[in-house]
Simulated assay, not measured.
Amino acid sequence: MNAARVIPVLAVALSLFGSVAGAVDCQDMEFDGQSYTICETDSAREDLRLFLRDDQDQILGQFSRVDATLEQSGETLIFAMNAGMYHFDRQPVGHYLENGIRQKPVIEGASPGNFGLLPNGVFCIGDRVARVYETHRYLADRPDCRFATQSGPMLVIDGALHPRFLIDSTSRFIRNGVGTSDSGDRVVFAISNERVTFHDFGRLFRDGLKLPQALYFDGKVSRLYAPALQRHDPGLPLGPIVGIVVPKQTE
């Protein structure tokens, strides 16, 4: 395969939020002839959270509902995407932790579907840090997470692609996921703008974005909320949602 080649075609910082410009940098990019949208942030500086239910214990499910809930506390959503697989009732398939409260335990063994294509992993958001962990490493390291969501498969593990990804796979879907640096300050979310294989998507994180750890969130239902790119992808209600929150600007 040809050497990795990344060509940014659109870069727009979220300057419409005034003093919080740069909280997340979203851009469309081309990697190996395929189109993706990536949104990069510094977890040491930004308020990164997971969302599932509102104050009435109802599944939020939509980016607009997350934003409406935040508005009540004088905050606003400047980025979001679906963040892990879920059942028909929108409950997370695997481990889920929100504001330090565990709502679903870790699933360690094999299970049906992409989630159980081991190794899978956990996206952990702590205090000024966010990291992707392979599930067994997450259990061994016991990181201090405020938020966590388990999904699968891992896309990149310690700089290597998932061992079961096939370069000649014919399974292609719109896919989304997250990758992190070893230090846990660089966090990059990505969604494909066309149907790609797991091998394609893993190479985006490893070779295009140079990230040592990356986790698959989902396919087919993948959606992005990025106001600076005028994207608010429609669709059926989601399960877990990851987002970046800033204080709402007053005029």
Rank of each mutant, 00 (worst) to 15 (best):
N2Y: 07
P8V: 10
P8E: 12
L10Y: 11
A11F: 10
S15Y: 04
G18E: 12
S19W: 12
D25N: 13
D25H: 04
D28N: 11
F31M: 01
D32Q: 05
C39T: 01
T41F: 09
D42M: 03
S43F: 01
D47S: 13
R49V: 08
L50H: 04
F51M: 13
D55K: 12
L60T: 03
G61V: 13
F63W: 04
R65D: 06
Q72K: 15
Q72I: 12
S73D: 14
G74S: 05
T76F: 13
L77E: 07
I78S: 12
A80S: 08
R90H: 15
Y96V: 03
L97Y: 02
I101L: 15
R102W: 07
R102Q: 15
Q103L: 14
P105G: 08
A110W: 08
S111P: 01
F115A: 05
G116A: 09
L118Q: 13
N120A: 08
G121D: 08
V122Q: 11
F123P: 01
G126S: 04
V129F: 10
A130Q: 14
E134Y: 00
A140S: 15
D141T: 03
P143D: 08
G152H: 07
P153N: 05
V156F: 00
G159F: 12
A160F: 13
F165T: 10
I167Q: 11
D168G: 07
D168Q: 11
S169D: 14
S171F: 00
I174G: 01
R175Y: 03
N176Y: 01
D182E: 08
S192P: 14
S192V: 06
V196H: 06
D200V: 06
F201A: 01
G202I: 07
R206W: 02
D207V: 05
P212Q: 14
P212K: 10
L215Y: 09
Y216M: 04
A226Y: 02
A228Y: 00
R231P: 00
H232M: 11
G235Q: 09
P237L: 15
P240T: 02
P240N: 03
I241V: 05
V245C: 09
V246N: 00
P247Q: 12
E251T: 05
E251A: 10
